[in-house]
């Protein structure tokens, strides 16, 4: 691995934070109560993973997790386009994204678990133990919705975005995992206006207090 590990950690952490944030927008309005609780809980887990990853990156960078999560400018975030879109009201799209993200994340975590960097491998193994249940949740929903035209369409739209979550060398593994041909991926890039709106809301309270405020 030639890139500094903080780059990798921040990509991962930003993906988990933003997906957790987007999924948490369903709290209170999911299709039924049981799913509301379960999906909110998964969203919270993702944010927990983000915290662990930010903490590791923060140690390398001599800062803290909150600064990385909330004090960067919107253009400094490096989350994949897949996780950025607001999908409230679009359950088919949300589940298609959830399923594809969990599949991509499984490939990424599997690779990280084999990393020669013991800390990376350790955190990946820890995250994987929770992600196993996220995958089960995503897979049971996919099984239920796979014949729904709305779900099929939502899946098609997100397939190139899902490939963009992974480094190029891992993409064939994702294609194999979900039984699809690789297509032109949507790569990570500077986040757009939709992300900026999310960032505004996400950092609103933090920005309302002086820098370095103790909460």
């Amino acid at each position: 691995m030639t890139r500094p590990r903080t780059d990798l950690l921040l990509e991962l952490a930003d993906d988990e934070l933003i997906l957790g944030w987007r999924d948490s927008e369903w709290t209170g309005i999911a299709p039924f109560l049981e799913e509301d609780v379960a999906f909110s809980s998964i969203a919270q887990n993702e944010i927990g993973h983000a915290r662990a990853l930010y903490e590791l990156a923060a140690r390398d960078l001599g800062t803290d997790a909150d600064v990385l999560a909330f004090d960067r400018r919107p253009e400094e975030y490096c989350c994949a386009p897949l996780v950025q879109a607001g999908l409230v009201g679009d359950w088919a799209g949300t589940i298609a994204r959830h399923f594809l993200y969990e599949a991509a994340d499984a490939v990424r975590i599997e690779a990280l678990k084999a990393s020669p960097d013991a800390e990376l491998a350790g955190i990946a193994a820890k995250i994987d133990r929770e992600e196993t249940y996220h995958r089960l949740h995503a897979e049971m929903w996919e099984l239920r919705l796979r014949d729904e035209p709305r779900f099929r369409a939502a899946f098609e739209v997100r397939w190139p975005l899902a490939l963009g979550v992974l480094a190029p060398d891992l993409r064939p593994r994702l294609a194999e995992r979900v039984g699809r041909e690789e297509v032109e991926p949507v790569e990570r890039s500077t986040p757009g206006t939709e992300f900026e709106a999310l960032w505004n809301e996400m950092t609103m309270v933090r920005r309302s207090a002086p820098t370095g405020a103790q909460w």
Partner: peptide, 13 residues
Amino acid sequence: PDQAFADAYAREF
């Protein structure tokens, strides 16, 4: 809706 969902929800709840 089915046992798979029930298992997942039981775990969460």
